[in-house]
């Protein structure tokens, strides 16, 4: 498929006898915001881990930009353009905000020796521009020398997002970014996700906050017990009988 950025064909993941993900087909078109919802344990985070290469496939194929990701290790997938955030924030707590972004700063092509040297041996001056952008975007510029562990929860979430963006991804997988946020923060997050898409990044949003999902996504796919049970526009999903049955709603007005 020409417009597909990410394609999952019959993707499965088994843990012993448990089928965490069961023959899921999913297509993510370039430039869209796809929502991935489902009850706890339905396999959403597992799919993210499979796409990112942290877990091996038990079956099926994952294609990114038309190419099979096969057994590519996680760091290669990041270089190819896939980035993610974690459900439980996984920042480098003992590193500063700046350093967290610095580690992620990964140019898609690093062929030249000069750029290689600059990246690995250079002090902070060399990479100021490249990190400056995600730093500004996260609104944490004033706190760039603070240890990540000392940030507030909301700031940490913003840093996590900025760090994923610092890797200059084409596809961004957000794993429950709104968890623990209040309404104001969710509205800000909504705005941020739209701005990310406007810059040409495709977004897959895993969330339980239905208002956010309904508001910001173009399409939604629903998982239950590792299988995809529905797919369509937010409105279609809301009134889908199987979805209602599987997923006795977490908020959201009909």
């Amino acid at each position: 498929m020409s417009g597909a950025l990410l394609q999952l064909d019959g993707v499965s993941r088994r843990f012993g006898g448990v089928r965490a993900v069961d023959a899921v087909d999913l297509t993510v078109a370039k430039g869209e915001i796809l929502g991935l919802i489902g009850p706890n344990g339905s396999g959403k985070s597992t799919i993210v881990n499979l796409v990112c290469g942290l877990l091996p496939l038990s079956g099926g194929r994952i294609r990114f930009e038309g190419r099979d990701l096969a057994a590519q290790p996680p760091h290669r997938r990041v270089a190819a353009g896939i980035a993610r955030t974690f459900q439980n924030i996984r920042l480098f707590g003992q590193l500063t905000v700046w350093q967290n972004l610095w580690v992620a700063q990964c140019a898609p092509t690093e062929r030249s020796v000069r750029r290689f040297a600059a990246r690995w041996l250079g002090g902070q001056r060399n990479t100021r521009e490249a990190i400056g952008e995600p730093l500004e975007f996260s609104g944490l510029a004033a706190k760039r020398d603070q240890l990540a562990a000392n940030l507030s929860f909301g700031e940490q979430r913003r840093l996590e997002l900025a760090r994923a963006l610092a890797a200059r991804p084409k596809l961004l997988l957000l794993d429950e970014p709104a968890a623990g946020m209040n309404a104001t923060e969710i509205a800000e997050l909504d705005e941020r996700i739209r701005r990310i898409r406007d810059r040409g990044v495709t977004v897959v949003l895993i969330e339980h906050q239905m208002e956010l999902v309904m508001s910001v996504t173009d399409r939604v796919a629903v998982l239950n017990f590792g299988r995809k049970i529905a797919e369509g526009s937010p409105g279609e999903i809301q009134s889908h009988p199987q979805v209602r049955e599987a997923y006795l709603g977490a908020g959201g007005a009909p």
């Binding site: 760091h75 990041v78 996984r90 920042l91 992620a104 610092a166």
Partner: peptide, 9 residues
């Protein structure tokens, strides 16, 4: 895990 996920080999 976080390091891998931001592109570190």
């Amino acid at each position: 895990i976080a390091a891998q996920s931001v592109g570190v080999n």
